[in-house]
Amino acid sequence: MEKRVVFRSAWLPYFLVAPQIAITVVFFFWPAVQAVWFSFQLQDAFGLKSQFVGMQNFAHLFNDRNYLTSFKTTALFSGLVAFFGIAISLLLATMADRVLRGAMAYKTLLIWPYAVAPAIAGVLWAFLFAPSIGIVTYVLKGWGVDWNWIINGDQAMLLVVIASVWKEISYNFLFFLAGLQSIPKSLIEAAAIDGAGPARRFWTIVFPLLSPTTFFLLVVNIVYAFFDTFGVIDATTQGGPGQATNILVYKVYHDGVKAADLGGSSAQSVILMFIVIALTVVQFRFIERKVEY
């Protein structure tokens, strides 16, 4: 039996959803449409005139070395962020799942980083790793590591990965912990009686049962690494040194706002938009097909 609410007035339901629709249209659809529109235009240097150029902006992009490099950088960056974000949080959740007493305290502490704004997370880690005054830098120097992410691209990448992963771990942790706690204890006990040691129990029972959660988090984390990490990058490396941490979303901002190439920047954001759409479709397809046991 389907339960339905029936409104007396035909207008009331539309009226009730109107604010949400308005917000979506003004802040999401309209900019998206604008981006698509601008991506077919070429503007002069002063932004006074623009002319329709068709696919030219896109053609430009795919012949641009920097853009392709940024693609690779983004792939590397989001791969690292998603992998470590998931692996570390799964490890933490597995350990927290064993703790009975004080579990709430751990959970509360572990969720804090999620409440921190990306830019602040970036600044925090930038301070810790600051080339001359950072405490981590100091420790690393003691170990004979020459740390300076301002000039070393790999180190810069490492820094933004750490800051981004740190921020994302709490979110993943909560999902994994909930997933772990929904696995009946007797399953693990049955496996132990069947002769499986802890590692085997994890990989043959726990991990497969968590796979829907893991997949969900994988997509969410990739989307996060693609877009939400803007604040982290802007507050630390600003895409540098060179192009070392210039991920796609940062490049959109940089080219559009700093280099004033509105057409090229719009074309980039249209491409990003398609990437999100693709990820979302994959997500829904998979979740629809994927069973809950």
């Binding site: 009946p184 007797s186 399953l187 049955a190 496996a191 009686i193 046991y293």
Partner: peptide, 12 residues
């Protein structure tokens, strides 16, 4: 070997 009240079968 043990049989549990909730059977504890491996769902996957």
């Amino acid at each position: 070997a043990m049989v549990f009240q909730n059977y504890a079968l491996y769902p996957h």
